[in-house]
Design a protein around this nucleic acid. Sequence first.
RNA 1: GUGACUGUAGCUCAACCGGUUAGAGCACCGGACUGUGGCUCCGGGGGUUGGGGGUUCAAGUCCCCUCAGUCACCCCA
Length: 440
Amino acid sequence: MAQGALPGFRDFYPTEFAQRAYIARIWRDVARRYAFVEYDGPPLEPLELYTRKSGDEIVAQLYNFTDKGGREVALRPEMTPTLARMVAARANALRKPVRWFSLPQLFRYERQQKGRLREHFQLNVDIIGESGVTADAELLAVAIDIMREFGLSPDDVRARVSDRRLLRALLERLGVGDEQLPAVFGIIDKIERQPREVSVEKLSALGVSSESADSLFSLMDGLTLDALRARFGDTPAIAERIADLERYYTYLADLGVAEWVQLDLSIVRGLAYYTGIVFELFDARGEFRAICGGGRYDNLLKSLGGVDLPALGFGMGDVVLGELLRARGLSDVPIGEPDFWVAAAEDGDLRDVMLAATQLRRAGASVEYALRPQTLSKQRKAAFSAGATYFITVGADFAERGSVQVDEVQHVEGAGASLVDRLEEMPKTLASIIALVRDV
RNA sequence: GUGACUGUAGCUCAACCGGUUAGAGCACCGGACUGUGGCUCCGGGGGUUGGGGGUUCAAGUCCCCUCAGUCACCCCA
């Protein structure tokens, strides 16, 4: 077996590269539509940037090494620390709120499995400097609009939303103390993936009563804000969170994405830095991992960069998204087929072909031709195989009158108006084709 | 890092109970069909059966190790 890429890394042959480029294009298009601007940082960072926040145990999951200057460095596993550093360094000069996005390639040293490799491209979209739920709504709308742009619908993808502050207030009401909170969050995070008895057992080991555990389970399933208010609205801290979430929903409706969103308090998102509303995007059939996850992390910039700015953001990787698009038949994208194939007729000259190709290329068209003399039938086959849209034949009369013969080889669906659509009959000279190309 | 399962051509798969030189389709390359050929026909290249070791007269097939893949755990970019 020929040597392939390293475990967890990918070769992008033209077909796969086209899919990757397609995903990146949609990401950029939608992010720009929401007036986010693109940035990037180094793929290699000081190891300390990641250990400072998460401790030494994270080193086990990093690609890290000592460089020739003796520096401890790591390939970036996430973008947020870089973003925090960059924003902190110019915090006073940046127009607020900061609306930035990036398409970094990220690395993690882990055993690969479905939807998780050692390398991936991840769209990061962040808003920094706005604490109101308007920003939370704006952020989620970007993620959902991207789904829509890929041709997915609310039947394919669901956005599940929770609020850590609400969850904390509810748990307090159920008698869960502050010191138990992180562990209980961890159990809730897994509540869907493990049998109920296991969760109950773990909760009771933490000292959570079985009545409280039952209440907890009742909160995880098909809950509405109205039902929450009816049960817990008399607690001010909870009522306040509910009111905030109601405004959030109103804004999501105004932004045209409400039908994708559902409340789901089992969404916790990792453990560390999220502080408010959090969300994940899942395929509706539950076949894949989360497509996207994010939320509010108001304290992170202070702890990382020393600048106290509220912040929120999400990450969306290309691996799970690509799997979903393939499974739904939405990932067939052209790899960059030529517009024209120029062929020499039996009495034609390869140099005339090159002259014609050059003129078409200068007009902006993508043009291929056989690099060695071939029969017309051979050239026609090659043109089809290459995916060319038009087949132009130049013969001996091309040199004198510039006349050519044009055939439509294949009509590309959704490619817009073809030359044929614009004409009663095929053009007869190269000049008339070029005029059309320039026009398009 | 732990566990289970799986590795035959670029892809999808054959190969009897262990038995001759590991085959087919698709893809690729070449040729024919001498004129809109996305067809049809003919031919070709391509494999140390993931790698190594062992058992046997004989291993793609059985055993061990290793590498890789898939899935789950851990963890969650």
